[in-house]
Nucleic acid binder design. Structure first.
Lengths: 167, 167
DNA sequence: GTGAAATCCGAGTAAATTAGTCGGAAATAA
DNA sequence: TTATTTCCGACTAATTTACTCGGATTTCAC
């Protein structure tokens, strides 16, 4: 019942790309360095993201990757499904019409599986990359402000917004 | 990102027990037969449920298992956690205070993991065994009615209630 | 045109997890 | 006393995870 390193690293890579790929392409090696992920492993993950049409690449020196669409059009669900496959916690045949499951008619566990699946789907499809990029810039700004020790009130307001968005 | 056979079989076993253990204990072998689960494997699962205090046993001939508390006091979350361990899809150290994660301050992926974890927790803790027992009796009644081909309107009303409960 | 920097591609692999099986000891009702 | 049942630990095959590695191909910069 865990999201594997594929999904975990892959989402971080996509956030990284969203942050850095607006003007130029970013290389696997630069993402790997920033995110502390093995380069050769990340290569595989990005290949899946490319196959799913979430990123585009340019080969050769100075090449790299960019998002294939605006960050606002890429949901966390798109990313995780590209890397992990179906996010359904239970692939219960009883949930389909004409199921192959003999006990489906009497089995009420399927309602539980459906609820869990639906709640996961909703959670991941409600967040898109642009929200995470925004949040990321907010966090960065906040830590800068704390370092500089000024504009305390502004910081507090931004922090509240963050809670509204993700709390 | 899947709930394993432990959780899947185990929940079905608990529903079965809730349906049949009100008056008498039920044996592993009878659950296994009804639910089409291997007897020796089910043994292991029920041991976990017992350890978690969800069922009690009586040994020897005519022995078996019963729920340790009323069905209404046992949530699906209790059952699945007893069998699967933590249901968190990501055990992200950045979600704890004083995390060991170096990049936690800048990592916004953690908000995603928190959301997913919370939505799963809510989904499983909102359903208890008594709801599933009720639903199960409803489904059984419905199929009896369909067989007998009468009381069609009553059936339709009950079906609507079912949708309200689990839709 | 040569070299360095990149993506691209497939194969291989150690470790962990899953989904069980098996054999037998201990308890208890009939 | 015997059949039924829980209880317990060890074992195992298959699958999945989390990578690594070697090399082919493309393209920019000089």
């Amino acid at each position: 019942m865990k999201i594997s390193t594929k999904g975990r690293y892959g989402l971080r890579a996509m956030i990284d790309m969203a942050l850095y790929s607006e003007e130029e392409t970013v290389s696997i090696s630069s993402i790997a360095a920033r995110q502390q992920i093995s380069e050769s492993y990340l290569e595989q993950l990005v290949a899946k993201l490319k196959k799913a049409g979430l990123v585009v690449s340019s080969r050769g020196a100075q090449g790299g990757y960019r998002l294939a669409k605006p960050a606002g059009e890429i949901s966390v669900g798109d990313i995780l499904r590209a890397l992990e496959g179906s996010l359904d916690a239970v692939e219960c045949p009883g949930l389909q019409e004409e199921s192959g499951c003999e006990t489906a008619d009497f089995c009420v566990a399927k309602y539980v599986w459906k609820r869990i699946n639906d709640s996961i789907t909703k959670a991941v499809d409600d967040i898109d990359l642009s929200q995470l990029v925004e949040e990321s810039r907010l966090v960065e700004k906040k830590s800068q402000n704390i370092e500089n020790d000024h504009k305390a009130k502004t910081v507090r307001r931004e922090s509240d917004e963050e809670i509204n968005l993700f709390g």
